[in-house]
């Protein structure tokens, strides 16, 4: 017997959530959206509960989770970093800034540092093109970021 364990309150919430969607297989994406809102990410245990409730193989759930970049199986860091890769930021060197974050933190996009402090994502346009390239850390906005400033910015959170 394979045992999957998850906190009872979380299981109850997920069960309720699936019920709200009538435990319908066709509602899988909606259920996953809500579940990610609830838990912050979609770890294996959450996917197993959803599979059981919707009566579908967990491989199907996992297939959908890995297909859409919106869904993540990695918990977000304490300070989530988003680097804008929209056109304006991109042409002003956002890729180099992103690469510097990857180098310093030793993680890739979509990953979280082992100490859980930082996670790294890229997004498309935050509507502050005048400040390009833009980086968001938590709620804080950094404008006209250069690769040379990355280490200094990160130190603010130590």
């Amino acid at each position: 017997m394979t045992q999957i364990s998850l906190a009872k309150c979380k299981v109850d919430q997920l069960v309720k959530l699936c019920e709200e969607f009538g435990n319908q297989e066709g509602e899988l994406i909606n259920v996953l959206h809500k579940a990610q809102e609830l838990v912050g990410y979609l770890p294996r245990e959450v996917q197993e509960v959803i599979a059981r409730q919707l009566n579908i193989p967990v491989s199907k759930v996992y297939g959908v989770v890995t297909f859409y970049s919106f869904f993540t199986m990695t918990p977000k860091g304490e300070h989530p970093i988003s680097v804008c890769m929209g056109t304006a930021c991109y042409v002003r060197g956002a890729e180099k800034v992103l690469d510097e974050f990857k180098r310093v933190l030793k993680i890739n996009v979509g990953e979280t540092t082992p100490d859980g402090k930082f996670s790294l994502t890229s997004l498309r346009c935050v509507g502050a093109c005048g400040l390009a390239p833009v980086v968001l850390i938590g709620e804080k906005v950094y404008g006209r970021v250069t690769p040379g400033e990355v280490e200094k910015i990160l130190k603010e959170f130590n």
Binding site: I4, L6, A7, V49
Partner: peptide, 9 residues
């Protein structure tokens, strides 16, 4: 019984 069981903690 080799089924999957979800343990609630």
């Amino acid at each position: 019984n080799r089924g999957k069981e979800i343990i609630e903690q």
